[in-house]
Design a protein around this nucleic acid. Structure first.
Lengths: 358, 358
DNA sequence: TTGAAAGCGCTACCAC
DNA sequence: GTGGTAGCGCTTTCAA
């Protein structure tokens, strides 16, 4: 009643728009433009079957009234959200933040919103998957960054109509963008072996409650493989594991280094960990590249500054590819999942040298 | 018709849930639990006026049917979104990523989603404000991280019923969390002056199309002020400005350093820039802390590794405070905007020493 | 404590 | 090319 009263009393919708609350609805625009709501809807969204003159008029009126479509209403009616839900174990980690930035740029340009969720353990992953399942209407698709699903879960997700692309791990059912992490581990280890190192520590990445199990395992496999090719067997005692924080990595590096039998080199599974190793080396007055060699993975923005030799993965490119896969997947044509594997690149800096005399 | 047909034919709603599309709606739950949709709605959301036995039954049935409420529908009906829109100039920058992480943790715990938008220029800011205005139904509130609004725009936003908290700048109309950037600039400059530096370069932060104007200006003011207190006048030629990327900062540092009259110290407005300065110093074979002193701002994760003296701002704490202000603002009681200013802290490391002989 | 029913604001179908 | 209108699935009075 109040509604009708307002509408019929208001001789000047423009004043209303200037007021608080902006209760301008599609009907108001329709009335002012002397067309139906259907036409307003078409005109505003650039759909066909609207006379050019009509469209102009509707656009003008909508602008004058400062009309803003109500999103939930549009979404409910259309059954689509124009939103992508992104899961990352830790939004502040460099790789993730950079990835989200790249993804956001692309998806925003394509008219999508980015819903960001920190997913650090199995419960949160479960919740994320449930919340973003098909008909929750929360998102049109999901991007899993280092938040792995096993084959069964992935299949169940798509079987229920879910759309997802995974970054950092590969599953048959989901489109994915990955790098060859065995090669990453192998390349990193080889450069060390080639310099003559024989005791190479391995600083492995925690699987964060086993959410991204495959990456550490694959890189470790590359480490083993490089050793095998050199007819060596790595000492299992030289293997420790931490999160990707430099502080933890530093502590772990001390475990490796505070012994008489310390390694002459360490392969850290990400640059942030490598930074921690460098910090530990400093604690012990070990000179990086002389007393201790270090290799990381990522090519973090800061790696160059500290002269870290590392295996670069092009994060921005991975983000762009992920966006492309998403857009493809959201398009009309239904196609099988695509798997893109991008190249990595060994970047040689100063943190690797021959083993020091002990 | 198809709808009714399905419902009446299906003797086993559970099978339906297991199938694709999960078309289980609130009505299905109501029917199976032999209550009305109103009761289901109340029971599921933990509202009062539901008999405990009834609630149990509804919960059980909903679980068995694997019911997921449709968000747009709920939002449309309730007029609330449980979503916070966050604007940052660059999602990949350390400060922003860390901030978003902290904010996300808190808000997720409180049941909110985080919508992340990269807002790098005036157009995008305009779009962001419009899109997240009151009755767009996109978000319940907005967090502006270093994406400044002038007083007029901020007032207009709240006048239309918008809710926002700002981080990094302060405006009367919006709740805010800030640090004292004049003090930041002054502290950083003072430590340099105290070591005897007289030619101190200033590496200023671009205002990214004037979105976060106040921070660089305030820090510069602190720089001036510290000089004034020491009865000195800084050389305007020692002032350059870049984005927060180390690559650009490095180039800019070269402009400062590749002259015969180069400064003996540089105050960089953020640590990422300071890293760039350190890189430039390395290019020129200048030893940091001896030939060239550097001070940054932030206490970036990597600052410790490279021994950078810096003015720390507690990012996680700022995020937590911002979340608190948000939650307060989304609560029932309407209160005037609150302004929280957090302390900063000078962290002394190795990048500052006495001026080298030239 | 519970249910009936009227919307929330928009889209999309179908008829014109 | 345009308009009428039946939903989209949920919440929320109001009455029982």
């Amino acid at each position: 009643m109040a509604d009708l009263g307002e509408a019929s009393l208001a001789g000047r919708p423009v004043a209303q728009a200037a007021g608080a609350g902006s209760p301008v609805r599609i009907g108001d625009v329709a009335r002012a433009a002397e067309v139906s709501t259907a036409t307003v809807s078409r005109a505003l969204r650039g759909l066909p079957h609207v006379a050019s003159a009509t469209r102009q008029r509707v656009l003008a009126v909508a602008a004058e009234l400062d009309y803003r479509p109500n999103l939930p209403a549009a979404r409910l009616a259309a059954g689509t959200t124009n939103t992508i839900a992104v899961a990352v174990p830790d939004p502040a980690a460099w790789f993730n933040a950079t990835m989200v930035g790249a993804l956001g740029r692309e998806m925003t340009a394509a008219g999508y919103d980015l819903l960001l969720s920190g997913v650090a353990n199995l419960d949160e992953r479960q919740r994320f998957i449930e919340l973003n399942g098909v008909r929750s209407g929360r998102s049109d698709a999901v991007v899993l960054i280092d938040v792995a699903l096993d084959e069964t879960a992935a299949e169940a997700f798509v079987a229920q109509g879910g759309r997802a692309v995974s970054v950092g791990f590969r599953t048959q059912a989901l489109s994915s963008v990955t790098v060859d992490n065995v090669a990453v581990g192998s390349d990193a280890t080889q450069i060390l072996l080639r310099h003559g190192h024989r005791r190479i520590g391995l600083l492995s990445l925690d699987s964060g409650d086993s959410l991204n199990f495959s990456i550490p395992a694959h890189r470790a496999q590359g480490y083993e493989q490089a050793h095998a090719e050199a007819r060596l067997t790595p000492d299992p005692a030289l293997r420790v594991s931490t999160s990707n924080s430099w502080a933890e990595a530093r502590r772990a590096a001390h475990v490796l280094l505070d012994t008489s039998e310390r390694p002459s080199a360490i392969f850290a599974m990400c640059d942030e960990q490598a930074f921690g190793v460098m910090l530990a080396a400093r604690d012990l007055d070990l000179c990086i590249g002389e007393d201790l060699s270090v290799v990381g993975v990522d090519d973090h923005d800061q790696s160059r500054l500290v002269g870290l030799t590392t295996v670069r993965q092009h994060v921005a490119r991975q983000g762009a590819v992920a966006a492309e896969l998403l857009l493809h997947m959201l398009g009309p044509s239904v196609e099988p999942p695509q798997h893109v594997q991008l190249d990595t690149e060994l970047i040689i800096r100063d943190s690797v040298g021959p083993p020091g005399v002990d």
